[in-house]
Simulated scan of single mutants.
Amino acid sequence: MYGLIWRVLPGPWVSKFIMALGLLVGAATLLWMFAFPALSPHMPFNDGAVEGGEPVPAEEGAPLEEPAEGEAPPEDGLVDDTTDGQG
């Protein structure tokens, strides 16, 4: 295929190279400007697997408990690494 394009382009190899490079840049531009945006909505890359929303209570009908004012939130197993370990 590339040999056919090379043979069809007129002139010496320098002009053929410049024209072939122009064809390559033109094809890439057309893809970026028209083809890729048209295909983007049909690609699965933007589909999230995790949905956001409200946390689900542990048991059906159980209210979510908020910490009282001035009370520390319940332990969730995460380590607080904001301190340098010196009390």
Rank of each mutant, 00 (worst) to 15 (best):
M1E: 00
Y2C: 04
Y2N: 07
G3I: 00
I5D: 04
I5M: 11
W6T: 02
L9T: 02
P12F: 06
P12Y: 04
W13E: 03
W13L: 03
V14A: 13
K16E: 00
F17K: 05
F17I: 04
M19I: 13
M19S: 09
M19K: 09
L21E: 12
L21P: 05
G22P: 01
G22C: 12
G22H: 04
A27T: 08
T29V: 07
L30D: 02
L30M: 10
L31K: 12
F34I: 02
A35D: 01
F36T: 09
P37T: 06
M43K: 06
M43D: 05
P44D: 09
P44W: 08
F45R: 06
F45K: 06
F45H: 11
F45S: 07
N46I: 03
D47P: 01
G48I: 02
A49I: 10
P55R: 05
P55H: 04
P57T: 08
P57M: 06
P57F: 05
P57D: 08
A58N: 12
A58H: 11
G61D: 05
A62C: 06
P67E: 02
P67Y: 04
P67A: 03
G70P: 03
G70R: 06
E71F: 01
P73W: 13
P73A: 15
P74T: 10
D76T: 07
L78W: 13
D80K: 14
D80Y: 15
T82W: 10
D84C: 09
G85M: 11
Q86P: 03
G87M: 02
G87L: 02
